Simulated assay, not measured.
Amino acid sequence: MRLNFHHAALIVQDYETSKAFYCDVLGLRILAENYREDRASWKLDLALADGGQLELFSFPNPPARPSRPEACGLRHLAFRVQDFDDVISQLEAQGVEVEPVRIDPYTQARFTFFKDPDGLPLELYESP
């Protein structure tokens, strides 16, 4: 069996705020945007550089999902980047708070975390 990543789906609290963050701050390209009237829900498909996708969904009054400390479920989304320092600088220039850089003790690669508008932890992982 050979599995490849296709997409991750996120339910967001404020659709327009999250759309702006993922498109304008992270620079993801819109593949499709659809309003699903029967669900009062937006679905936004965003392209990652490696062919993967993020799907953003809005729903009326979604319940909060615990994320810390170490709640069961999705821990974080990680983005592999080659221009690590440049990406951090671009995020900080747009007002995104980025945690101090750490070193992976197993690979020696640098990584750091930041959050999306709903507080979902996002990771930058340096690609050699």
Rank of each mutant, 00 (worst) to 15 (best):
D24F: 01
S18M: 04
P60K: 14
E16K: 13
F111P: 00
D86C: 01
A71K: 14
L122N: 06
F114D: 06
A9H: 04
A64H: 12
L31R: 12
A47M: 04
L26R: 05
L122V: 01
R36E: 15
P100A: 12
R68S: 14
L3Q: 10
D45A: 15
N61S: 09
D38W: 07
I30Y: 06
A20E: 15
S18P: 12
R29K: 14
L44S: 07
N61M: 03
A49N: 11
L48M: 10
V87M: 09
Q94H: 13
L91H: 08
A40T: 15
S127Q: 13
D38C: 04
V101A: 02
L26T: 09
A8Q: 12
G95Q: 10
D85K: 11
W42T: 11
D14M: 02
L44M: 02
Q13E: 14
L54Q: 08
T112N: 04
F114I: 09
S41F: 10
F111G: 08
Q82T: 10
F5T: 07
Y15G: 01
Q94P: 05
S41M: 13
A71S: 13
L56G: 02
P63H: 11
P69L: 06
T17K: 15
W42G: 06
K43D: 12
Q94F: 08
A8E: 00
L3Y: 14
F79Q: 00
A64N: 14
Q94A: 06
L3P: 02
E97P: 01
D116V: 11
D118E: 00
Y125P: 00
L124M: 00
D116Q: 01
G73I: 02
V96H: 13
Y22L: 07
G52R: 05
Y15K: 09
D86I: 00
L31A: 11
I88K: 06
G27P: 06
R110C: 10
R110G: 03
S67A: 09
E55V: 04
E16P: 01
Q13F: 01
E92G: 03
D104F: 11
L54C: 09
L31S: 03
V96S: 11
Y106K: 14
H7V: 01
I11K: 08
